[in-house]
Design a protein around this nucleic acid. Structure first.
Length: 338
DNA sequence: CGGATTTGACCGGCGC
DNA sequence: GCGCCGGTCAAATCCG
């Protein structure tokens, strides 16, 4: 019965788009630079996700790429209690938002936010609680109710506090994008109104409760929606050397997300047939930037509005400038047209 | 053999 | 109260 349906969820949606190419899906105007908001990914792409449905009101970084590249976009979840956006030096001035994004910029914040928790501190508390559970909590739980299959110590009368969430959309044939952290899949569910299942991952780092959900957009099968929940409080396991330099021969990626800046090894991209291009917080918006990459000529990046980015891992000096993470030679700044 | 994934079951929130 | 649905658990299974 229902189980039959459940079985369907395990059909992996990897092939549906095998014969699709990026350029097939979204024609890229010749003059990217002149168009500040090309990839206005419809909110309706995520009808099943309450959080994402309200995406219209938050800032996002939308990166455009040449047809060879995927198009990653990052969205700040509207409810995300975003830790007070580090007002640092580089806080973006919304006044600079282009007219095209006015709807985005002016939409009032959702009033739901009060129910939200709050900030990274809460997130951390949550994390800590979760951190405790794997070892101690679970033990106790099992002791308490071994008869039942499982019973989480869910706090009653206490809504589960939502952690800061970030979602970004990526054009990719691969569902699970490697972001430098190690994830363990702990569930997969069919999503209503979507032929594609949603996968649930948890960071495998011992004291990290960060989770992420990965699903394909039902509207656009070529788009993978990755939603991060929580904040990594540890360095990426894959950055043993702590090197932040970009690999010249191919593109390493930096992702500005809930977990800060990440970078990953080029090989991983090749495996994934995906090349995420660097995107970051940029001190002023909007800005148009070109990146020189060896395998392709450039990618186009547009920052429409500020997007919260937690402080990068330790060894990182961030002045909020692109140059902080990208060798200056990789950047070709384009003169603003406005 | 250990870690990762799969998958059916369970739980809680929410709308009706 | 009931059913739907998202999220999670954990045993079974897979895989390197």
């Amino acid at each position: 019965m229902e189980k039959d349906k459940r079985l369907e969820k395990n059909i992996k949606p990897e092939n549906p788009m095998s014969n699709l190419t990026f350029s097939d899906q979204i024609p890229i105007p010749a003059t990217l630079a002149a168009i500040p908001n090309i990839y206005d990914i419809p909110i309706a792409a995520h009808p099943h996700d309450h959080d994402m449905v309200k995406m219209e009101s938050f800032g996002f970084i939308d990166m455009l790429t040449v047809p060879d590249y995927p198009c990653p976009s990052i969205y700040e979840m509207p409810q995300s209690p975003l830790p007070p956006p580090p007002p640092p030096s580089n806080h973006i001035n919304n006044n600079n938002a282009p007219p095209e994004s006015s709807d985005v910029a002016t939409t009032p914040a959702t009033p739901n936010s009060p129910s939200v928790s709050t900030s990274s501190s809460d997130a951390q508390n949550d994390d800590q609680q979760q951190n405790k559970t794997p070892v101690e909590g679970e033990q106790e739980d099992r002791d308490q109710d071994k008869t039942k299959k499982h019973l989480k110590p869910k706090k009653k009368n206490q809504k589960r506090q939502k952690e800061p969430r970030f979602a970004f959309m990526t054009k990719s044939e691969v569902d699970h994008l490697d972001d430098g952290y190690r994830w363990r899949k702990y569930g997969q569910k069919a999503v209503k109104n979507s032929p594609f299942p949603r996968s649930y991952y948890r960071c495998t780092s011992p004291s990290c409760g960060v989770k992420k959900r990965v699903e394909r957009s039902s509207g656009d099968p070529t788009t993978v929606v990755t939603t991060y929940e929580g904040t990594h409080m540890h360095p990426t396991p894959l950055t043993s050397r702590g090197s932040l330099g970009l690999v010249p021969e191919s593109s390493a990626s930096f992702i500005c997300g809930p977990s800060g800046y990440h970078h990953q090894q080029p090989q991983q991209f090749q495996q994934q047939q995906l090349q995420l291009l660097p995107f970051f917080r940029v001190p002023t918006a909007p800005a148009s930037l070109h990146f020189n990459t060896p395998s392709s000529s450039f990618a186009h990046m547009i920052v429409q509005e500020s997007s919260y980015c937690p402080p990068p891992p330790s060894s990182f000096v961030d002045n909020g400038l692109l140059e902080d993470i990208v060798p200056s030679e990789m950047l070709i700044k384009e003169p603003k047209k406005e």
